[in-house]
């Protein structure tokens, strides 16, 4: 799938994450939307599903695992990439067993995430 047609949604309650990842991920050519509030992110997703969702796992109202569940329930082919603050085997295993595409542990470099996103894009059925 051509990167230009790919839509990415980034959800993290840390505002800087969205602010910095937007230009970083746009370099791949994809369209990037960022959200700090998981609820409004999900509401937006229900109307305009994206191909890739990058979400933080630990947020106040709705956590990343729940977002994963709801995103996949809405759109099965969406690739969900989980950001974990404190990488534990259990969380990673849970995320992967629930259908996450991959996970990346904080702190990470934008280029690390870009690699995963490019892999996810290749995996997307055109």
């Amino acid at each position: 799938m051509d990167m230009k047609n790919i839509k990415i949604m980034v959800i993290d309650d840390e505002s800087i994450v969205g602010k910095r990842l937007k230009p970083a991920l746009e370099k791949t050519g994809a369209q990037v939307e960022t959200f700090e509030d998981p609820e409004s992110a999900l509401a937006h997703f229900y109307e305009n599903p994206t191909d890739i969702v990058v979400t933080d796992i630990r947020m106040d109202k709705i956590d990343g695992i729940e977002i994963l569940d709801r995103v996949l329930a809405k759109s099965g082919q969406t690739k969900v990439i989980i950001i974990t603050g404190y990488a534990t085997v259990e969380i990673a295993r849970e995320a992967l067993s629930k259908g996450a595409f991959d996970f990346i542990a904080k702190p990470f470099k934008p280029s690390d995430l870009r690699v995963i996103i490019e892999r996810a894009a290749q995996d997307l059925t055109p």
Binding site: V17, L21, A24, G85, K106, F108, P110
Partner: peptide
């Protein structure tokens, strides 16, 4: 601690 570290890392990288 990973949150501010990640923020610094992303910002510095960009």
């Amino acid at each position: 601690l990973n949150n501010p570290l990640n923020n610094s890392m992303l910002t510095a990288s960009m």
